[in-house]
Design a binder for these strands. Structure first.
Lengths: 332, 332
DNA sequence: TTCGTGAGTGTTACCGTTCTCAACGTGATC
DNA sequence: GATCACGTTGAGAACGGTAACACTCACGAA
């Protein structure tokens, strides 16, 4: 910077003003400085800037160290939006969604002076850990099923509505009731899907079948599917996500139950290839990239008014049903 | 830091020595400093450290802004290894695998003083762009099918061997020849799989069927599958990846060709749920997380000996065949 | 004429580290 | 007993920016 100043015949401060688009610089001077910067191929040193301003133009993301579809796709939504806003994105992953590992991740990001944090927070442990983040560090939680009283903004998909959509769709097709291949019971999102499903059945006066705990992958779905396939009265299944649905589909196939002729199946997520399952899966679509963008917008807004006393907004993203070929009417 | 020094009754320099594990500090002094640090809850300011040392303890990753399975999983391998080595990971994604966007990403990372870059480089444009990175910035490319003369280390899976494994497996089962549902022709990895496939057929004296250009997803696989299903002589198909295989599977099913009874199918990647396709997919497994770790190790090594005149290592990871239920013997 | 005002610019201090080098024991060596 | 090496410590100057403030000048109002 000193060299640029010398070459342009101005003080380093004027150079600083130019790079920061300060208004009070004569056009002619600005041009001279810009020319000097170009000819010296000058790039501002962000570390020095960070040191002086305590602002790094870097955002932190806390993710879960497992290849779950949702979180992955959100990363890209966040990153591209962050780039547009002039921020770089750093990621810290946690091996386990527990208090301590998350705190550690926050600490690591804080040491690197991130200006704000977006946490993929599917379990409450993450959210509570986040409340212990250093004061003044803006946080946004995305995912999970918040209590509504978080001290920071959240973005979530409306899982209850999504589950309701799926269940009602099956009911409308004439199924007496709908069985559920659930996710892990200690994940609020899985629980919210159970709730939406149960409520809908209850409202329709349908029997509410028992559920058993699962996980998010096809292996778990397969187990659930075997259990359900063993029961000849099962004609409709709502799976907690598409991967589970894949396992269910296979279990049904193995026991000779045709989909959708004998049993209808609905998933959740609308993963890229679920339209090519056998049969193509009817599912509840959620736009993860969009959620990432929303989270980022919220974070930037939160950072801008750090002392904002207004209650933190809780964005609820509406999912919608994608009709494909895994569901069919039932006439009994 | 000044406060810590004052509390411990030493100079700031001694505090610095303590945090950097400098040997020449009396044990008693060190203890006193550590105690002071603890009681003041001191954290070193990394921005200041970066400014002084030109070392940020941050690594950059250049990724492709699309949810392809491979790159995703690598990120986690890289991140957790980086964390263990005391580095934070920043990501810069590119919307398009072309020269200019990649250079822009490099620039963005360089501005933030990353100590090194790992680029997910499935296409040569990324690699060549990388050669224009600022001198002294260590780079590692992972993926693609390098020319072998890159000025920096690379990590790649041995696609040719993988394809050979798949093709030979089908040949060994008694199939007269093997058809290929190819990926995008301008991706070296897809091309290498074509090469391995073709070589194997050639070596076995089998007919080499024509291929048509595709993409990496199930939709493209479905198209390929329809084309292949129309030809009654097709009894074995090697798909360039698992998602393509999924589409192929469905196309075959739709045209009444049973898998594996009528047609055998092999995939590539071993995605998490491919064991639950219908039927469970025999595929070529590659360990993306491990590749990420290897890439990181290479990068750290490369950074340590920045002036290393020794030729950059090109790590080739061996894939292996996972046998499941989508292939069967053929007796003609 | 005098003064205030605001645009344009420069001066100096400061952000929190590490680096360089000098200084101060202390014990071993001659 | 002087010298020397070495372990231990401290003082001051970087590192490359930004913030705060002072200064100059031109212009319009009193």
């Amino acid at each position: 910077m000193r060299d640029v100043a010398k070459l342009a015949g101005v003080s380093h401060q004027t150079v600083s003003r130019v790079i920061n688009d300060h208004p009070n610089v004569r056009t002619e001077t600005r041009e001279r400085v810009l020319a000097a910067m170009r000819s010296l191929n000058y790039r501002r040193n962000l570390a020095a800037r960070t040191l002086a301003t305590r602002e790094s133009r870097t955002l932190g993301i806390i993710g879960f160290e497992t290849t779950l579809f949702g979180p992955e796709s959100m990363l890209y939504g966040i990153e591209s939006a962050a780039r547009a806003a002039g921020y770089l994105v750093s990621v810290a992953t946690v091996r386990e969604l527990a208090h301590h590992p998350v705190l550690e991740a926050v600490d690591r990001l804080a040491q690197h002076d991130v200006d704000g944090i977006i946490a993929i927070a599917p379990k409450p442990a993450v959210t509570t850990a986040l409340t212990h983040a250093p004061a003044g560090l803006a946080c946004v939680a995305v995912g999970g099923s918040g209590s509504g009283v978080e001290p920071f903004p959240t973005v979530r998909v409306d899982n209850v509505t999504g589950a309701r959509l799926a269940t009602q769709h099956l009911l409308d097709l004439g199924h007496a009731t709908v069985h559920h291949a659930a996710g892990p019971p200690d994940w609020p999102e899985a629980q919210a899907r159970v709730d939406g499903w149960r409520e809908t059945l209850y409202a329709a006066g349908a029997v509410v079948p028992a559920i058993s705990p699962g996980w998010w992958d096809a292996a778990a779905g397969y187990e659930q599917g075997r259990r359900l396939a063993a029961d000849p009265s099962v004609t409709a299944i709502f799976a907690a996500n598409d991967r589970i649905a894949l396992g269910v589909l296979r279990a049904l196939h193995e026991s000779g139950r045709r989909v959708p002729d004998d049993v209808s199946v609905v998933g959740f997520d609308d993963m890229p290839d679920s339209g090519y399952f056998m049969p193509p899966l009817t599912t509840v679509h959620q736009d993860f990239a969009e959620m990432g963008r929303r989270a980022l917008a919220l974070l930037l807004h939160h950072m801008a008014r750090a002392d904002g006393a207004d209650p933190p907004p809780n964005v609820l993203v509406a999912p919608d049903l994608v009709l494909r070929a895994s569901t069919a009417p039932r006439f009994d």
